[in-house]
């Protein structure tokens, strides 16, 4: 029974990181239909910002989270204003343009910080282990799990309980009519994109102590995160949560049965089949638009 529980916890940990990265992407893709290939680079920037603040300014890990969120969100705002807002009528081209933005961000970081791997230290308070139902788990992973749940709750609150969220949902349902009611839809889009980018930056900051930080780190994340979003279904942040944990558990279990590579290949095959039969996503009952 123990190994089963252990696997479930590994899966939850993989799932929480997936969700962390996918949440920002889900908001951007779900509300604006923009496929943000630069999302991985936002994650990477978040990780680098954490590293830089740690190494040069001596800012503590938790304090740097706020700065990272605001900084990457500002950058996201600029990207939306400068590039993406011209492409709302050509959704497929957003893949290309944001990919170009991603390449630029990667190169800028490589030119400034160098191409070598960087390491971020875990905050000492979280580096211990805790016991969950008799299984020892790294304290930091528990922290990430709880943090992601809190972020999700905050996002849900923002989307469904605030004036901003109401306006956002109105714009998503019908941009023209929302504009007729005096909602500044382009401002809503910019802020939403900024929020999604900020979440990506946070994800990078949180992932940094677990993995090494490099200019290319974002590329792998964006593909995985994208599958989570598509599987969860557009416009459903609950779907994103469910699919992140389903994918996390599936990857964990299959990796336990065979090996990591086969697990990943099987999960991708599963995703292909699911998209074919349910392009609207696993967890949405009706697709609007």
């Amino acid at each position: 029974m123990d190994f089963l529980l252990e696997n479930i916890i590994t899966g939850l940990s993989i799932g929480s990181i997936l969700l962390l990265i996918a949440l920002g992407l889900a908001i951007i893709y779900g509300t604006m239909g923009v496929i943000n290939m630069a999302h991985g680079e936002f994650v990477m920037l978040g990780a680098y910002a954490t590293w830089a603040m740690n190494a040069f300014l001596g800012v503590g890990f938790l304090a740097s989270l706020i700065v990272v969120f605001l900084g990457v969100a500002c950058l996201g705002y600029l990207v939306e204003r400068g590039v993406i807002r011209f492409l709302y009528r050509r959704p497929l081209d957003t893949i290309l343009a944001t990919w170009g933005v991603g390449v630029m961000l990667q190169q800028i970081v490589r030119l400034i910080a160098g191409g070598e791997l960087r390491y971020v230290e875990m905050p000492p308070a979280l580096s211990g282990t805790v016991s969950v139902l008799g299984i020892t788990v790294s304290g930091y992973r528990v922290f990430v799990f709880l943090f992601v749940l809190a972020l999700f709750a905050a996002t849900w609150y923002l989307m469904y309980r605030t004036a901003f969220g109401t306006k956002l949902r109105a714009v998503v349902q019908n941009r023209e009519i929302a504009s007729c009611f005096g909602i500044n839809s382009s401002r809503i889009y910019s802020l939403t994109f900024a929020y999604g980018a900020g979440l990506a930056g946070l994800a990078g900051a949180l992932v940094a102590p677990l993995k090494s930080v490099s200019p290319e780190m974002g590329t792998t994340y964006v593909v995985d995160a994208f599958f989570v979003v598509v599987l969860g279904g557009v416009q459903s942040i609950f779907g994103t949560v469910a699919s992140a944990f389903v994918l996390g558990e599936a990857t964990g279990m299959l990796a336990f049965l065979w090996n990591d590579t086969i697990a990943k290949a099987l999960v991708l095959l599963g995703i292909m089949i699911l998209i074919r039969f349910r392009p609207q996503g696993l967890f949405t009952s009706k697709a609007r638009r």
Partner: peptide, 20 residues
């Protein structure tokens, strides 16, 4: 299946074969 989903399925397919 059209548009974005074609892009995703073909991408996933590429990754699967590459991994194998």
């Amino acid at each position: 299946i059209t548009g974005v989903f074609v892009a995703i399925i073909t991408l996933a397919n590429l990754v699967v074969v590459n991994l194998l």
